[in-house]
Simulated assay, not measured.
Amino acid sequence: MEFSPFNNIIKLCLQGMEMEEKEKPEEALKLFQQGWDEATNDFEKFLAAHYVARCQKDVSDNLKWLEIALQFALKTNDDSVKSAFPSLYFNIAKCYENLGDFENAKKNQELGAMFKENPSDKGPFYHGTRADLQVNDLLTAGGISNYQSEIKMNHIYFTALVNGAGLAAALAKGEGIERIYIVEPTGNFENDPNLTDKKFPGNPTRSYRSQAPLKIIGEVTEWARQTPEQLEKFREKLANNKGEIIN
């Protein structure tokens, strides 16, 4: 399943997180529980269970919901959830440790460590921009951040979700038209730390970065475009973002 901020379950999770930020845990739990009740597929159930779990004050209840989240994550078993396996296993291990079950704590700690490796995503990968480029051109690090103009980026960013690249293109600075290029990493890459495990577990947006160039191998012309109202909401969130970009 492709991660989308317009998915109803993801919207409920975002609303729940807003309640957490406002220090309203009971309202947050209601929204997360509603997400669980309304989830219709394994990915949505994994996501909602994850948030229900972190609202639990009792360790046993926390463990129960984490294991439910893991169950549905394993059923989904695609690149939208694989990056969440380390944090799921490590959190489950911590629960077992708190319960005095050190054998299961060790087992889950080892599973978490096993999954904490370089991204296994095979793509295809996309880069959204307003620059006019050609096949075989190289995209390189060193550009100015689209979100904080005083920052020169040490990495080049890309995603395996075409609609995510479309959003990046729409939000990019410049006067050119929105472009999505199909790209091929020429070196190692890693999960984007600005997104991974920030609001959502793992890297469901399948967003990556590399210090090595990206080679343009094609272009996409069709993707789901956001309305002007939706884009304005994204711009407002970016303007109000108090977090620092990890460069």
Rank of each mutant, 00 (worst) to 15 (best):
N7H: 14
N7A: 07
L14H: 07
K22T: 00
A28D: 04
L31F: 03
F32N: 01
D37K: 14
N41L: 03
L47S: 06
A49N: 12
Y51V: 02
A53E: 08
N62P: 00
N62Q: 14
L66R: 12
K82G: 00
N91T: 07
N91V: 00
A93H: 06
K94P: 00
C95K: 09
L111G: 00
M114Y: 15
D121L: 09
P124Y: 08
P124I: 09
H127M: 08
T129Q: 11
R130P: 08
A131I: 01
L133V: 00
Q134D: 05
T140M: 09
M153E: 13
N154K: 15
H155D: 10
I156F: 01
L161M: 06
L161N: 13
V162H: 06
A169F: 09
K173V: 06
G174S: 06
E178D: 11
E184K: 15
T186E: 14
D192A: 02
L195S: 05
D197K: 03
K198W: 02
K198E: 04
G202W: 07
S207C: 06
Y208R: 07
S210P: 07
Q211E: 15
K215P: 03
E222W: 01
A224N: 13
T227M: 05
T227W: 02
T227H: 03
T227S: 15
N240C: 06
G243I: 09
I246T: 12
I246P: 02
